[in-house]
């Protein structure tokens, strides 16, 4: 698995799905999630040569910093924190165990950044069960766990972010951040499984 392939696959997957993310966000947010993620990952891909030349952990930190500086919405600091903190917590050794620990550390930082927790209709509702599947060593279950978790945000009521202004009206829509997290997880799995 090369760092270049990983970043290209994740970035292009989010860019391809930008319109879908925007539609989800128009339903319950401010309608900029797809546009913001596309802007952020276009900036990442524009800097691909420099990023891919780094070791994986350093590359992830660079991806995170680019998202923070380029996105322009709340998803910038949130996804920026996720990628940066995984990079900071990940050493030179990349195994399911080290990845599980790094993702767990990053999830704690995302919780703090967003003042949020699971069950509040956010990206955390996908990241937390995915981390649990990685930690359990059940790699074959990750894809389904991510899809089920994203679908499970549909009946949730938003507590955080712009969607929380809608109260009960946020019920019945998938959370755009949960969907973008699912897309990231799926694209990473595609690379790991040699399907990208």
């Amino acid at each position: 698995m090369t760092t270049r392939l990983l970043i290209t696959t994740v970035g292009s997957r989010l860019i391809e799905h930008a319109d879908e993310l925007t539609r989800l966000d128009q339903a319950i947010g401010d309608g900029d999630h797809g546009v913001n993620m596309r802007r952020g990952f276009e900036a990442v891909l524009a800097d691909l040569d420099a990023i891919a030349a780094k070791p994986l952990n350093e590359a992830l930190k660079q991806v995170g910093m680019t998202l923070v500086m380029k996105v322009g919405g709340a998803s910038g600091p949130l996804y920026g924190t996720l990628f940066s903190e995984i990079g900071k917590a990940l050493g030179d050794e990349v195994t399911p165990a080290t990845v599980a620990a790094a993702v767990d550390a990053a999830i704690q930082k995302v919780k703090a950044r967003g003042k949020s927790d699971i069950g509040q209709k956010t990206m955390l509702d996908v990241l937390v069960p995915v981390q649990a599947a990685i930690a359990a060593g059940n790699l074959g279950a990750i894809r389904t766990a991510a899809a089920d978790a994203a679908a499970a945000t549909v009946p949730m009521k938003a507590i955080r972010g712009r969607a929380s202004f809608l109260g009960d009206r946020s019920i019945g829509h998938m959370d755009p951040g949960a969907r973008s997290s699912q897309l990231i997880v799926e694209s990473v799995l595609d690379v790991v499984e040699g399907r990208a």
């Binding site: 923070v68 910038g76 600091p77 950044r113």
Partner: peptide, 8 residues
């Protein structure tokens, strides 16, 4: 987002 980005 203005709050999150300001904290960042």
């Amino acid at each position: 987002g203005a709050e999150t980005n300001s904290e960042m």
